[in-house]
Design a protein around this nucleic acid. Structure first.
Length: 314
DNA sequence: AATGAGGTCAACCGCCTAGTA
DNA sequence: ATACTAGGCGGTTGACCTCAT
């Protein structure tokens, strides 16, 4: 049974031949695709329009990146997936030259297994129940191993924000040392089902001080662990700064009240917009938690507390 | 060399949404 | 308001490949 778009005509299925590829490439590079439903006829192909579109998008497009995913791309996929869930098309937008199909395949064939091997649920990015976990060689060290925490003191953050996100990623070591992160942010699959968390979630840093963790618990305004423009301000002098902190510099970051609700399409869009700023620090906000990665090396923190200042604590 | 298991990935299926008549 | 169409998307399939036995 074919699609309604091609049910009336005889269509070929299965793998594309080099000749078919050539016809499609010639047609699109000459005329553009226009209406995909008319492409097969115009290009002289016995394929349905959807098939042509898919072939072009996933395989023939000239701007596609070939080859295996880099460690950096893998981290991006994991981080965005943690926030957005199985929104492959949205995730792929953060990976130039990669398609949603490619990302999806990579996730299902590789990343998923890595996360499970690390004792993490690939759907929620939460720790699996103990029965699923493999023994952790570092279990004597209770310190969380992969937490990107923000203590929003402007004088510290301003320095951090001068670093483009791409640079932040690139300075991360590329080894895939298994780690057991603390997940304060979850994709929508989980965020809305977790128990109400203590709004003042603190984490012990390597220096012994406590820092609050921007959380995607229901008490977090964004709901996605994203610090958005509604409760934060970016200034060139002070860097990324929660509004709350502007008023009460000496107080810990206070969570805003947020009623439990399912994320709206607009909120998902907003989360995605924020993620889109991964390399544009000149704009007014930034999803700090986007940097948090389960594949960060053991014991690594991104710490901006006034006590510790900026540091990657390993 | 043969074969079976498991992994990878291109392609399809079916659903959803937006646009239009 | 309704029906229809095209395009987009996520889930799934199955052909092909690799590797161990």
């Amino acid at each position: 049974m074919g699609h309604h778009c091609c049910s009336k005509q005889k269509v070929k299925r299965g793998l594309w031949s080099p000749e078919e590829d050539e016809k499609l490439i010639n047609h699109i590079t000459t005329y553009g695709h226009g209406s995909w439903s008319s492409v097969p006829k115009l290009a002289g192909l016995e394929r349905c329009g959807k098939s042509c579109r898919l072939r072009w998008i996933n395989y023939l497009r000239p701007d596609l990146k070939r080859g295996s995913f880099s460690a950096q791309e893998e981290r991006i996929i994991i981080d965005v997936h943690r926030i957005l869930g199985n929104k492959w098309a949205q995730i792929a937008k953060h990976l130039p030259g990669r398609t949603d199909n490619e990302v999806k395949n990579f996730w299902n064939s590789c990343v998923k297994k890595k996360l499970i091997a690390q004792g993490l649920d690939p759907n929620t990015h939460n720790l699996l129940p103990p029965s699923h976990n493999k023994p952790n060689k570092n279990h004597n060290n209770p310190k969380p191993t992969s937490v990107f925490s923000l203590h929003s003191q402007p004088k510290d953050v301003s320095m951090d924000m001068s670093i483009p996100f791409s640079t932040l990623l690139s300075i991360l070591p590329n080894d895939d040392t298994p780690s057991i992160p603390i997940y304060e942010n979850q994709n929508p699959n989980l965020v809305w089902t977790t128990q109400e968390q203590n709004p003042n979630t603190f984490m012990e840093t390597s220096m012994g001080s406590s820092v609050p963790i921007i959380s995607s618990s229901p008490s977090n305004t964004s709901g996605f662990g994203i610090v958005n423009e509604e409760n934060c301000i970016w200034s060139s002098n002070n860097g990324f700064q929660p509004i709350d902190q502007l008023n009460r510099q000496d107080e810990m970051l206070q969570p805003q009240q947020q009623e439990k609700k399912a994320p709206s399409a607009m909120e998902i869009e907003k989360a995605d917009d924020i993620l889109n700023m991964d390399a544009s620090f000149g704009s007014s906000n930034f999803g700090f938690d986007f940097v948090e990665s389960p594949l960060l090396p053991c014991g690594m923190y991104y710490n901006t507390s006034p006590v510790d200042g900026f540091a990657w604590d390993c």
